[in-house]
Amino acid sequence: MDTIDQLAAATNSHKLRIDLSNMPYICSCDDYHMETIQWIHKNRDTFIASPREDYMCTLQDEWLYIFQNALEKTNDYCRLQNLKRNLAISLPIVSVCLLIGLVIFVKIKGFRQRQRERKNIRSQIELGVFPKKFVAFLSFSSEDAELVVETILPRLNSELQRKTTTGTSRVLVCSGDRHFRPGYALGEEIIRCIEDSAVIILAVSKQFCQKEWCRKEVQETYDQNKPIVLLFLEKVEPDEMGKVLRKLFSRYAHASWISDSNGGHIEPDWSILCDALLDLTVNKSDNKTLKWLDLNWFSS
């Protein structure tokens, strides 16, 4: 093209005629191809010779007449390709941003919903209209009674009482030693206490895993579809647990009692544990199935 332009500039343009027809021109978004077609189109009234119908180019296997609609169609095609490319780049980014925004919105909404539900539960407890007789039923082995009854049970009950708006003197934690009715069958009392409680806490130890009545309490809790919190009093290997306990241990987070020089402490702390217990009392579906605890602290 440069050579022909120089020739045209040095020659009388009325005497110069150049035939560039019937050549394999390509119409595309490539800058070189576009420049070629534009150059031919620009010089159609000067030195470009031969019938104009012989100047054609291919655009995506379609033949176009260079002196008719080739430039217009090519430009339209290139604009469409640019739009597709921009959409291909921007849509995933926009989609990810929208997804992140949606996740954040759902998280915030869920957090606020849990706050409202927790506040409602606390109000029910304070006003004495809580639908269950107890917030939690604490199941433990008789061998662990000293630790559970003298240390864990009173602290758990007092911490739950403090979680209400103004505090309550109502007993919120049920235990077999204190609430089983004398003269009644143990199996019947286990079922009654589990039914009267919103959440079941299993104080798990090696002795607990070996006791028949403890296994019955675990099975009854599981059969009633109650939310369960595992509180490990000591390290227990999975093969020492029963089938149901092992299944719960592998699937859900648990709390632990840690011995120390001050008599021991619970992990996570009492506030987190009690908030989780209150959250678990709320029905989440029409069939009244209670959600499970996820303390997000300890997974083994």
Rank of each mutant, 00 (worst) to 15 (best):
R112G: 06
V148D: 00
K132S: 12
I125V: 10
R112T: 10
R122M: 07
G128F: 03
L156P: 02
K132F: 14
L153S: 12
T166N: 15
V149E: 10
E159W: 13
Q124K: 13
Q161S: 12
R155Q: 15
Q113S: 12
P154R: 01
F111A: 11
S158C: 06
T166P: 00
V129A: 09
K119M: 04
S123M: 12
T168I: 06
S123Y: 10
R162A: 14
N120L: 04
S139H: 03
L147F: 09
N120K: 08
L127I: 11
F130E: 01
L153V: 06
S141C: 11
L147K: 05
L160D: 06
L156I: 07
R155V: 13
K132A: 13
A136D: 11
G167Q: 04
E126S: 13
K163T: 08
S141R: 01
R155K: 14
R116V: 06
L127W: 08
P154Y: 05
E143A: 14
Q124W: 12
R155L: 11
T166A: 11
S139N: 07
Q113L: 10
T168Y: 05
Q124C: 01
K132N: 13
V149D: 07
E150C: 06
L160C: 03
R116D: 07
D144P: 03
R118H: 13
K163F: 05
L138A: 03
F130T: 01
T165L: 15
L160K: 01
P131Y: 12
I152C: 04
G167S: 00
T151A: 04
D144Q: 01
R162C: 13
Q113C: 03
E159R: 14
L160R: 03
G167M: 01
P131K: 15
Q124T: 01
F130V: 02
T151C: 02
L138C: 02
R112Q: 13
I121D: 00
L160V: 03
R114Y: 04
K163D: 11
S139D: 00
S139P: 12
S123H: 09
T165N: 12
L160A: 05
V135Y: 02
R122D: 00
R122W: 04
S141Y: 03
S142P: 06
K132G: 09
L153F: 14
Q161T: 11
V129L: 08
K133F: 10
Q124L: 04
E117I: 01
S139M: 03
A136I: 08
E146I: 07
A136Y: 12
V129M: 06
E159V: 14
R112H: 09
Q124F: 05
F134E: 01
F111I: 08
